[in-house]
Amino acid sequence: MLNYIWIALIAIGILVAVGNDVADEMRNTYRNGIPVEGTIAIDKSPGPLRNSWEGDLILTADAFNAFYNTTAANADIHQPIVVTELSPGEKSVSLPLGPSSPDRWKEMAKAAASRDKLTGKVSSMVISDDQQRARIQFVLEPIHYMKSKAVTQAALDYATTAVTIALGLIGIMALWLGVMKVADEAGLLKIVTRFLTPITKRLFPEIPPDHPAVAAMIMNIAANMLGLSNAATPMGLKAMEELNKLNPKVGTATNAMVTFLAINTGGLILIPATAIAVRAAAGSANPGIIIGTSIFGAGCATVAGIVAAKLLQRLPRYRKDYEQVAAKEVSNG
């Protein structure tokens, strides 16, 4: 299943990206080659030491929306602009992108020659007599294959991110695995396990109730519920390692592993700290109001996950992996 989903994500991603690029070319979404018309409020004019005008490019929202055929802009656009005289009669324009820039231009810059600005050629510029304002027409650099470029960049970026995440785990992994080992040797894990045996026996019937895997799973679920993700991951990985020791067919998931991960992906957490923090930052009057609803939602997810895992493991296609193993064990004597 993961096989198909994985290839589907990649194949759909690439096909949609190419499709979007073709559609963009046909519609000329980025208006390649068509001049933009606007007014500049000039701050600085050319002098002995500079050959450029600096100021604010002003475009009305209606003009911008009509030009790009969107409804994205809802206020007039004030965009910093630099017009440089390269040679008499030839001027280039540069739009450094900042917080006030329209989203469409920010998006276009991702596929532009330089990531933080859009450049172009001025086709006409008429400066008012008082040197305060100018009418300008310019053609921005052509933007092509936007999504394909984004896909390439994403693949490279995420590969790096994956390694960063994994390496970042080393320290906390070492810490918690060390602590768990001490707890194990001291017999503490067995005590933790004994309390919850009635539950774990039902959830993981294949696992002996006093197996170290059970303790690690309990600790992982408890840490997740308290929102201690730093501690939860190492304990969860420890649990997987212990479960794998009972795995007759290494490389294939066991029923217990799937049930354990279904509980994990349910993500039951008593205080959804991240969501609360974002709500508080966004100025909510009551950031914690979602605690109850989140527990309910995650509870639904967890119960559904466990039920699904238990039901799906009975399907012939998922059972056959284990029946083959059992048959082989019998024939090996």
Binding site: M1, M240, N247, M257, G305, L312
Partner: peptide
């Protein structure tokens, strides 16, 4: 972490 490649019903359950 345990080199499992055949995930069986884990994806649908998740």
């Amino acid at each position: 972490s345990v080199q499992v490649k055949n995930t069986r019903h884990a994806v649908p359950a998740g």
